[in-house]
Design a protein around this nucleic acid. Structure first.
Lengths: 340, 340
DNA sequence: GATAATAGCTGAAACGTTTCATCTCCTGAA
DNA sequence: TTCAGGAGATGAAACGTTTCAGCTATTATC
C-alpha cells in the first residue's frame, strides 16, 4: 500500500495525500477527511525509508553500547530512549556484548577496533544523525576519530578529544572521604579497581584530597586493587582488616566489591556500621538488599543518557571548536553501612 | 558523497560502481580496483536508506522491550543481537521503560495499549522485517493482533494466538520438587509471585506434581505470595518458618526473593543448607554472591533471543497455520543453598 | 570467415516519498 | 469590469540506490 494507491482510491493527486499526511500545504477540509478515511480503511503506513531519503533527515540516533547487560549501561540507555521519544527520534542500537567476549580483560578492547569501526560504518550508512557510545570505562578510542564529521558523544566515560557526558568521580569521592572524617574516623581503607583503571585514579585522588585537607594520609598498605568483582574485594578486605592498625572505614569502588567487604566483615564478627563503615559505588540493585543495606553513590545515569542525546543535536547545530565535556554530579545515598 | 559522484570521479557509470560495491554484475578487475580506490579516498559510504528503498529489503529487525534494565531482558537481547550480527541485520529497538513508569503494577499494562501500538506503527513504518516483543511476564496482548501481517514473536513470555519463544517453567519446577524429595525432605514451602501471575501458576503446578508423584502434598499454609521483591519474601519466610511444622526446603520463585529467605534464615540462626534448603530462579548476578551462593534456575535467555530472531525469518518464508511455540528447557544450578 | 556466445559496460527506470513550480478558480478591491 | 491575490489542487522532479535491457567488443565454435 503506497501513497500512490491512496491517491488513486481517493481520486486526488499524490501531492495532496502527502500534504494531508504531513499537515503541510493547504487542503480543503472535505478532501482532507476523505483522504484520512481511505488511509484508515486501507491501514496505510507511510514508508519511512522513502520519506527519509527524500527529506534527508533520518531522525535516527545511533547508539553503540559495550554491554547491554551491565545495569548502568541499560539505565543510561533509558535516558537516551526517553529523549528519543520526546523528540520523535528512533534509536538504532548495537551491542558489542563485550563482557561475554573479552570478560574483564578490558585492555583487550583494542582488538575490537575493527568491530567498532564496522558498527560505526553501519550506523552512518543508516543515516543516523549522530552516535552515542555508552561505556562505563574510560577508553582509548583514538582510532575511530578520523574520517567522520557526524556528532559523536561518549556517555559514562571520558576520553581526550571526544565530546562526552559523564559523572563527577573526583568530587563524590571527596565527599566520601569528608563524610568518613566527620564521623570521626582516622584510619581509612580503599579497595579500587585494577591498577590501570582511570576511574579508580580519579576516585582515589578525590578521596585522598579530602583526607589530606584534614591532615590525614592514606599509606599504600591501606589501598588494595580489586578487579571489580566480589571475591577479589573479600580477599582484599581480609588483608586490610588484618593490618596492625586496621581501617575503620572502607571505600570500595563498586557495590559488588562493597558486598565482598561486607561479607568479610560479617565473618570477622564486626558490627556494621559500629565497628566498620563501608561505602560502595553505583547504587546497583543488590546494594539495597544487603544486610545492612549499603551506603553507596548514585550516579545520574538516566540524566547522562538524556543529556548526551540532547548534546548530539546541539552539536549538529553548531560545531564548537573545543570538545565539550559535561560532568554531572553524583549523590551519596546514606543507608545502613555508615552512621549517618 | 553519492554513488553518482564516485562514478564521475572514476569515469565510469553509476551502474558499474554499484556492481563493484555489491560484487554483482561483471566488472573487469582493472575497473574494480580503480573504483575501490576512489571509494576509499573519498570515504564514501552508501546510503542504506536508498539502497533499502530500492531493494525492498530493510534488513532491520524491530525489537520492543518492556524494560531494558531488567537483566533477563538485556541478556535475551544479546541473543537477538548476535543473531543480527551473524545475519547482517540491524536492530531497531524501543524500550517501554515499563518498570519506571508503572512499577510493579503489571495489570496497568493495559494502559499502555496505545503506546505499544504506536511503537509498532513506527517500527512497521521503518520497514522492519518482523517484530520481537521481549517480556518476562505473560501478557494479554490481544489488542495488538489485528491489522498487521508482519512476523511478530513474543520472547520470554507466552500468550495465546501468538508465536512465542519461551522457557519451560513447569518441568524445571518439577525438577526442583524432585530434587528436594531426593534430598529427603518431607515438608516444603513455596514463595510465589503475585497471586494472579501466570508464571507462578506454571511453576507451582510443576512443583506440586513432583510432590504428588511421591505422595507428598503442599497445604495452602505452605504457599505464600510475594511480589517478586526481597522484602516481601523475607516476611513470607518468617511466616513459613514459624509454622508448627516448618518446611525444610523452600522454593522461591526468583533470586531476589530467595535472597530474602536467606536473610530471614540467617536471622533465625538456621544453617544453610543443613537446616534449610533454598532454591531461587533466574540466575541473577546477585545469586552468585550471596552467602552461601544460591542454588537457582538458569533460564536459556541468550538462546531464546537467538531462536526468536531466527523464528522471524522462518515465519517470513512460510506462514504456518498454527502459532508456533518454542519452549526451551532450563537448568538447575547446584550451588550452596542445597546439598548436592 | 561467419555466427554465436559472452564479458564488460552503460543508460534509464524504478522504489515511495516530499516539495517546487504551475495552474485554475474564486473572492474582493479598485 | 478588471485585476490582484490567495486557496486548493496537481504534475513532475528529486532523493540515492539497484537492476533490467541493451550495446559493443572480444573470443570461441564450426
Amino acid at each position: 500500500m503506497t501513497i500512490k494507491e491512496i491517491a488513486r482510491r481517493a481520486g486526488v493527486s499524490v501531492a495532496t495525500v502527502s500534504y494531508v499526511l504531513n499537515g503541510t500545504g493547504s487542503v480543503s477540509e472535505e478532501v482532507r477527511q476523505h483522504v484520512l478515511q481511505i488511509v484508515k480503511e486501507t491501514n496505510y503506513r507511510k514508508n519511512i525509508l522513502a520519506s527519509k531519503l527524500r527529506t534527508n533527515s533520518s531522525n535516527i540516533l545511533g547508539v553503540i553500547v559495550e554491554d547491554i547487560t551491565v545495569w548502568t549501561s541499560a539505565r543510561t540507555i533509558q535516558g537516551i530512549g526517553d529523549f528519543a521519544e520526546q523528540h520523535n527520534k528512533n534509536i538504532l542500537m548495537t551491542d558489542l556484548a563485550l563482557n561475554s567476549k573479552i570478560g574483564k580483560n578490558f585492555h583487550r578492547i583494542r582488538e575490537y577496533r575493527d568491530t567498532i569501526n564496522k558498527e560505526i560504518d553501519i550506523l552512518l550508512g543508516s543515516q543516523v544523525e549522530g552516535i552515542l557510545y555508552v561505556s562505563m570505562h574510560d577508553r582509548d578510542l583514538s582510532h575511530i576519530l578520523p574520517s567522520f564529521s557526524h556528532p559523536f558523544v561518549l556517555v559514562g566515560c571520558y576520553a581526550e578529544d571526544f565530546h562526552c557526558v559523564t559523572y563527577d568521580n573526583t568530587n563524590i569521592a571527596y565527599s566520601i572521604g569528608k563524610h568518613f572524617i566527620e564521623n570521626g574516623h582516622t584510619r581509612f581503607g580503599v579497595i579500587s579497581g585494577p591498577s590501570g583503571s582511570r576511574i579508580s585514579c580519579k576516585r582515589l585522588s578525590g578521596f585522598t584530597r579530602a583526607l589530606a585537607e584534614q591532615g590525614f594520609s592514606l599509606p599504600p598498605a591501606y589501598i588494595c586493587s580489586g578487579d571489580w568483582e566480589y571475591v577479589s574485594a573479600r580477599q582484599a578486605a581480609f588483608e586490610l582488616l588484618a593490618l596492625p592498625d586496621p581501617p575503620t572505614a572502607i571505600f570500595a569502588m563498586n557495590d559488588l566489591m562493597a558486598a565482598g567487604v561486607l561479607s568479610a566483615a560479617h565473618q570477622l564478627n564486626l558490627k556494621i556500621p559500629e565497628n566498620l563503615e563501608i561505602v560502595g559505588f553505583d547504587d546497583q540493585q543488590l546494594s539495597q538488599y544487603s544486610v545492612p543495606p549499603l551506603t553507596t553513590v548514585q550516579v545520574p545515569l538516566y540524566d547522562m543518557g538524556k543529556e548526551a542525546a540532547a548534546q548530539i543535536y546541539v552539536l549538529r547545530e553548531s560545531k564548537p571548536q573545543r570538545q565539550s565535556q559535561f560532568i554531572l554530579p553524583c549523590r551519596l545515598l546514606h543507608r545502613g553501612t555508615t552512621r549517618f
